[in-house]
Nucleic acid binder design. Structure first.
Lengths: 180, 180
DNA sequence: AGCCGTTGTGTACGACCGTACACAACGTTG
DNA sequence: CAACGTTGTGTACGGTCGTACACAACGGCT
């Protein structure tokens, strides 16, 4: 088979990696599984990403950007007339409703930084980015705490299989946000 | 080699599994690696734990119990004269200081429930257990939120490599706990 | 044209994995 | 003692993995 030049090969591999993690989990991520999902030969994935860590960094960064786009397009965060806690609680509800593949995918990549130092700068960037968006409506320190609380609440739902209680989330977010 | 009867074989395998996860991460856990760490033949680990999930459940449960013992022995949580937020923030500081192998180990097993439904009941049990301990000092709903916030703060420190800011943690815990 | 670095491909090697399964050693029961 | 279920052991099979490496196709340069 003749080799076809593909300037977006790298990008397609990253997208395939995200698909693989979403479907089979991070444990199912390998050069081979990604190659199959992207419909490229094995040598291609190892060429563009020497290690799996590199691939995960690219995938996490991409997922992070997609996530940022979603919450940006949603608006409401900028609107000072809406209550911040209510807004955040409602948004978590939407995020956790229905198909959780996307949520699990993003948390799995994010949490992978626990054991993979290579991912930490990207994870830090993500957390900072979200906090910066909230900082328009409150102070930076409170913003960081809101992110922490949202992470904690989401994880409790995802890890324990509990139902998401929006009223509860709203109340606790309001306590942290104060008058904001 | 003659086979030696070992009534605590199962327990030794669990302890070896915890050691392996602590040293090599959850990804390094296998029937073989555990067998080597416990100094038992391969067939022994597969006999006592048909699947790795079973082994993880046992390890998480054990780690959870050890954790419970530590915070119980620390006391202070029962003492109504101390400020709850101050107490919790100080305790997180101790936990995160120094060698983080134990912290990482416990969070890694806990977070593994995200993709492994078999672990969820154990994770839920753990979260409930911690919340119940706090419930002596505040209401159950607030207790759950305090656990969520602590998880979120811990994860931000562990995932992003940031420094732990005890004053910040104390302030935010106080906001959630209210007068408690 | 010829040369060369980059990008892409195919294949093979050694390591590790879960699983299965036959067999050995034991405790219990009759 | 004999029979039997439980517990422990050794080995081997098929599969997947990361990695390496020789080679092919291309673009830019002289």
């Amino acid at each position: 088979m003749p080799r076809r030049y593909d300037p977006e090969r790298r990008q397609r591999i990253i997208e395939a990696a995200i698909r693989v993690v979403g479907e089979k989990g991070l444990a199912g991520l390998s050069h081979r599984s990604v190659a199959a999902a992207a419909d490229v030969p094995l040598g291609s994935t190892t060429y563009h990403f020497k290690t799996l860590d590199e691939l995960m960094v690219a995938a996490l960064r991409q997922a992070s950007e997609g996530f940022a786009k979603v919450i940006a397009s949603r608006g409401g965060l900028e609107d000072a007339r809406t209550d911040l806690a209510t807004e955040l609680a409602a948004w978590m509800g939407e995020w956790l409703a229905g198909d959780r593949t996307g949520v699990e995918l993003e948390y799995e990549l994010y949490l992978a930084a626990l054991r993979r130092p290579a991912l930490r700068p990207v994870a830090a960037e993500w957390a900072d980015d979200v906090a910066r968006r909230l900082a328009h409506r409150t102070d930076p320190v409170t913003a960081r705490a809101l992110v922490a609380l949202m992470d904690g609440i989401c994880l409790q739902v995802l890890l324990t299989g509990a139902e998401y209680d929006e009223a509860y989330a709203r109340e606790m977010l309001r306590r942290v946000a104060g008058g904001g």
